[in-house]
Design a protein around this nucleic acid. Structure first.
Ligand code: ZN
Length: 669
DNA sequence: GCAAGGTC
């Protein structure tokens, strides 16, 4: 048997799935698949020329160093599986390349057409061959026509794109490794313990967001709100009016109004409006939306959802999951897929309904992806799925079917009502046509009836009640809201966001209730020594530099050298600062040095010697008291009341009990 | 051991 690849043209793909599609498209299905050293490869001939398509599994190479200590700027690219036991699965890909690529006479980089893809293919070709003999296939989807077109129009090696990718990797490594090591050094100096800590361009701004949210909630001081609830009775049925105005801030005003409302005795119907609302189906799923929905509906974490999606993808049940696209191109062949899905009992009636449409038009969203469409089911029938896999698969199928369906139609009645000079409303909701809601029933639309009234009607008031409520702190973050926050800030990628959130938990910077003491320590250390790394702006500046490198306006060496200077300067300053320092002088949050009389963190300059968090809570208590005072509360009563409210932040409550203790002492003897 | 980025 002759060896594979004798002066062949080697086509390097980013992953096995893509390799299969590329081989099939270019060879018109004639490619022969063989398992070579455990890696699927495809062989075919065109005009006597031998082609071999070999997949990688993402990056085979990674940056590494053998130097310890900081600053560290010496690194090189090495095969990942050699240094990292968690990446042993890459070894077979490495071996397949090392047998085949040296016998190739030319190479085609057919990795995803984005910066990382350019780099993945380039590193592989460079390791075993001559990059001057490399060409680039450029495609934005794996549909046959597009792949054939890009194969006929091979581009030159996209060296500027590769340089931009290399620059990004190097800058991230320099920042991440140096600051991570600095943190570990500092922690060791303060506590005498060795502990793995980390920092990076994406994880650190995310940690800062958790800390901001945690402090905001812990120092929250509520103010009271007084609503006057009015109930009317029509035809023996009681309705609670919805207030159309802000609640009262003063109890007295609410009471006065309630008295007037009661004595007037009736409500006046001002206007009755009927409208037919139509709700378009949801967009096709991108990864972030799917992770958000899986968490909302099933409380499955974003990382777990991605893992399940990867399993479903490798089982050929769904398309590529790491996509930002909310668009489904027609070329996917939706009618065939929906016909297949209809073979599954759960979806039969819905699929039939969708197939009755003459044209299938998805409700495409605005988000896009350079290499992949939105997530859709392939139409392959799953054999047996585990519980959570079944839930996620169901979500994908339902969302997919829904996006082709008719809008949901809702009849809505809005009644404007006036009671003693204040505006109220009543809303009636009735779903008259379910449309896509039939396929994707994960939204609760509460149906409500309203009394049959007309403008000018006077309706008897049955009951007037004053209800007290309180302003609320911002909602706490969870893994799904954090992921959406990262998305909104444009940090991380589909492949990395969920895992980076897990890193914050694994490091114990963050737990179920927000930032931990360790998280606060890392936060304040980075704020003190490496504030640039905590800012979203660092990513923006990376992006600008990469764009300029891609356009040939800037060189990688230049931006990398600049990064070494910036990071090097900060590291030198850090080393000097901690050289002769006593742990108590670090003034970091999360470290008990005995300063703050409440928590023992270092004090900032203020009257009580509070740490910054308790000082912030104290300032809010003083500020918010102005509102309560207008409502007739004395300081003592105010503190008493707040200490009993559940929504008062923990740090605020701690300050309250501290103040009450010291005040008692002051007035006692 | 430490990043962020691919994918198994
Ligand atoms: Zn404190």
């Amino acid at each position: 048997m002759s060896k594979i690849c004798n002066d062949c043209i080697a086509i390097v793909a980013e992953k096995p799935r893509a390799a299969a599609k590329i081989a099939s498209a270019i060879s018109h299905g004639r490619a022969k698949k063989i398992l070579y050293k455990g890696v699927p490869i495809w062989i075919f001939r065109i005009d006597g020329e031998e082609y071999v398509v070999i997949p990688s599994a993402g990056h085979l190479f990674s940056i590494d160093t053998n130097k310890s200590g900081i600053p560290v700027f010496e690194y090189k690219w090495i095969p990942r599986h050699v240094v990292d036991d968690d990446y042993k699965h890459l070894e077979r890909f490495y071996k397949a390349f090392s047998e085949i690529l040296p016998r190739a006479k030319a190479y085609i980089n057919a990795c995803d057409y984005d910066i990382e893809g350019s780099l993945i293919g380039y590193m592989i070709v460079k390791h075993w061959g001559d990059v001057r003999k490399m060409k680039r296939m450029k495609f934005s989807s794996l549909v046959e026509d597009e792949l054939r077109r890009s194969f006929r129009n091979l581009g030159p090696p996209d060296i500027d794109m590769i340089e931009a990718g290399l620059a990004r990797h190097e800058m991230d490594w320099i920042w991440g490794i140096n600051v991570s090591r600095a943190l570990m050094m500092l922690f060791n100096k303060i506590s005498g313990e060795r502990r793995v800590l980390s920092a990076g361009r994406v994880q650190t701004p995310t940690l800062f967001e958790v800390v901001r949210n945690t402090i905001e909630r812990n120092t929250f001081v509520p103010t009271p709100l007084y609503s006057v609830n009015i109930y009317i009775e029509v035809a023996g049925k009681r309705y609670k009016l919805e207030s159309a105005e802000e609640p009262f801030k003063r109890k007295q005003l609410a009471e006065e109004y309630a008295r007037t409302a009661k004595s007037s005795g009736y409500a006046v119907v001002k206007n009755v409006r009927r409208e037919v609302l139509s709700y378009k189906p949801p967009y096709p799923f991108n990864l972030g939306d799917l992770q958000e929905e899986a968490h909302r509906i099933y409380r499955i974490s974003p990382a777990r959802t991605l893992k399940i999606l990867e399993d479903l993808y490798l089982d050929s049940l769904i398309s590529y999951p790491r996509t930002n696209s909310q668009k489904l191109p027609a070329s996917i062949g939706h009618r065939d897929i929906i016909q297949s899905i209809g073979r599954l009992g759960d979806y039969r009636s819905i699929a039939l309904k969708v197939l009755r449409k003459e044209i299938l038009t998805p409700n495409n969203g605005p988000m896009d992806d350079p290499a992949h469409p939105a997530i859709y089911p392939t139409g392959e029938i799953p054999r047996r799925l585990e519980k959570e896999h079944a839930k996620i698969y169901d979500l994908v199928v339902r969302r997919y079917l829904a996006t082709f369906m008719d809008p949901a139609v809702i009849d809505r009645v809005s009644i404007d009502i006036e009671v003693a000079g204040r505006a109220y409303k009543l809303h009636g909701t009735k779903i008259t046509y379910k449309g896509w809601l039939e396929a994707y029933p994960f939204y609760k639309i509460e149906e409500k009836t309203v009394p049959n009234v007309k403008p000018g009607d006077r309706i008897n008031i049955a009951l007037v009640r004053i209800a007290i409520s309180y302003t609320r702190p911002e909602a706490p973050h969870n893994k799904a809201t954090l992921l959406k926050w990262m998305e909104s800030q444009g940090i991380g990628t589909e492949s990395t966001r969920a895992e980076i959130i897990e890193t914050l938990f694994r490091r114990k910077y963050v737990d179920g209730s927000g930032a931990t003491d360790l998280g606060l320590m890392v936060y304040s250390a980075i704020e003190k020594y490496f504030p640039d790394l905590s800012r979203i702006d660092l990513t923006r500046s990376f992006e600008e530099m990469m764009e300029k490198i891609r356009r040939g306006e800037l060189r990688r060496e230049h931006v990398v050298e600049k990064t070494k200077i910036v990071v090097g300067t900060a590291i030198e300053r850090f080393l000097k600062n901690i050289e002769n320092i006593d742990p108590s002088e670090t003034k970091l949050l999360g470290i008990k040095t005995g300063g703050c009389p409440i928590c023992g963190y270092a004090s900032s300059n203020n009257e009580h010697g509070f740490c910054p968090i308790h000082e912030k809570a104290y300032e809010k208590l003083v500020e918010v008291y102005k509102e309560w005072a207008k409502d007739g509360y004395g300081w003592e009563d105010y503190l008493e009341k707040l200490s009993k409210l559940e929504i008062t932040g923990t740090a605020a409550k701690e300050v309250i009990s501290f103040l009450r203790k010291t005040q008692r002492k002051g007035s006692g003897d």
